[in-house]
Design a protein around this nucleic acid. Sequence first.
DNA 1: CCCCAGCCCTGGTCGC
DNA 2: TGCGACCAGGGCTGGG
Length: 269
Amino acid sequence: MPELPEVETIRLQLKKFLVEKKITGIEIKKSKSFPNDSKLVIGAKVIDVRRFGKVCVIDLDNKYSLLVHLKLTGQLLVNGIIGPHTRVIINFDSDNLIFNDLRIFGWIKVVKTDEAENSGFIGKLGPEPFRDLTFDLFKQALEKTTRPIKIILMDQEKISGVGNIYANDALWLAKINPKTPANQLSNQLTNQLFDAILKVLKDGIKYGGASDQHYLKPDGTRGEYQKHFLVYGRKGELCERSTCQKEGAKITRIAVGGRGTFYCPNCQK
DNA sequence: CCCCAGCCCTGGTCGC
DNA sequence: TGCGACCAGGGCTGGG
């Protein structure tokens, strides 16, 4: 599922492939995937590609932008192959951009560029890691609530861009139990968690995202972060910490807030 | 305001 | 072999 590292990887490739390219036509196969009037952007040229949390913003030279949210199963492929899950095809002079989305949760919306940052939930997003998330802001987000820390990490209004994969891995790295009430974390653990979030997101970007299930980069290649998962998706495997290995401690899967949660009960107390 | 349950979707998996 | 039930989950909505 595309989270900050995946969407950032997509952004960098789209910027390379699409800037200066002109939209010549849009074919909408599912209106739910592209609910606005495509005429608003036909003939416009791409000038920039930005990212807010998990949303990709493609800015055009006619004061409009395309917002893309891939949700769980969305893919943006440059010159990809049209398949059974292709929902939208954006044609450029000599290339096309294919939006595949098996579960039809994702969308592409047309907004005015100067309203993009405030449109819909982008305006409600919390501080962005690597941009404006500071330790003090992070601490403030945690101290107001007794909800489980994992829920808070994934709450886009608290911190933007962190989803299930990176929340699980960050909590393991910081040795924190996912169910710990957010306001009960000590200053030291809060510090460890802050560093851990930045570390796993950075690794995610370094490996081009996690191609665990559907995610592909726009050039059609797979990311590599799934080969470096710390706990995510590793139910039943031995925890990587040497002390846990000696004791045979295994990664467990539980539900927190209804979401699949992976952790080591031995080192994440 | 805060929080939670239910909803949207479809392919894969499991039990009978 | 086939069929139905169930599950995955980001963000939205409605209710307490």
